[in-house]
Amino acid sequence: MAESPFKADIERVEKELTEKMTPGAIAYIPGSSVINKTGSWRVFKPEFNKDKCIRCFLCYTYCPEPAIYLDEENYPVFDYDYCKGCGICANECPTKAITMVREVK
């Protein structure tokens, strides 16, 4: 399983981010949003069927988060820490390899 492209960023941000107010309220740490796990918003969850995947990269390309990255073999990996469950990936998948199922919590 490939690693999230944000793994290093999460570590960096957790180490550096502070609430200490700066003159002009400048946000000094780029990409610090990564510690905000938006996956908790999700109602529907994309489920992936690798057998149907043709590795067309459409789901990866169209994810607005981005919460889909690619593994070593170019299959999509769904990052449930961030996936808000919009369903674009399932809607765009040409082989119906992705289906949206209700999140069980």
Binding site: G24, I26, A27
Partner: peptide, 8 residues
């Protein structure tokens, strides 16, 4: 890459 003028 800093961000200035963010939402407070």
């Amino acid at each position: 890459p800093i961000t200035q003028g963010t939402l407070g």
